[in-house]
Amino acid sequence: MSSAEFIIQGIITAIELIAGMDPYILSIAGVSLKVSGTATFIASLTAIPLSFIISHREFWGKQKLLTLINTGMGLPSVFVGLFVFIMLVPAGPLGFLKLIFTPKAMIIAQYILVTPIITSISLAAINAVPIAIRENAYSLGGSHRDVAVVVLKEAKFGIVTSVLAGFGRAIAEVGAILIVGGNIAYTGSVGGIGEGLSYTRTLTTAITSETSSGDISVAIALGLILITINLSVNAAVSMLQGRGEERGTA
């Protein structure tokens, strides 16, 4: 087989698998979206209020918290994976939670990875809202909560961008979830091809294992789905940034 043939054949089979809604591949994409989506959602629930508090309040340790967030932005995912693994493994301090090698463990790892990113980007967006906007809302009779709503609305493009960026990091991440999730698929049907449905197997970890076992077409199919999701997220982010700038110069 020539190399071109090999690649083309791989891609054709991959497209057939996607078009045929192969249940194994769909279940992997589903686990990826579920884990990364949930992690991003919970991270947003922490990060957005946190960035608001950092922007609006003075408190002890604020500088340290900012340093921690900046450090967290660049945390290697395998390090986070190792940390969560040590914590959750039955021999570890949180072993009693029985979370190791479950989707929840993966959500925890991705939560740790993604929260600093969302916090940092939404903090920048909130800081960019002019103080005059805040004071006007306050002056017009708004309570602290009303003012917060105004500021969040003003920063909404930046905040949505931060959430999408966090999701983009989560869905493309492999090191942490491989360690804490274990890349598990359920037992396949007897005599059938390949594996059963995914339990903790995601697009990224499955690409790793499918490449290892030589199932290049399946790996390509998974890669195509992953890259489609990722490109869409990136397109949305750059589109939003374009809008934010447009507003800044207006």
Binding site: L33, T38, F41, I107
Partner: peptide, 9 residues
């Protein structure tokens, strides 16, 4: 998509 994935989650 994001929201759907949350709900499935």
């Amino acid at each position: 998509m994001l929201i759907a994935s949350l709900f499935s989650g």
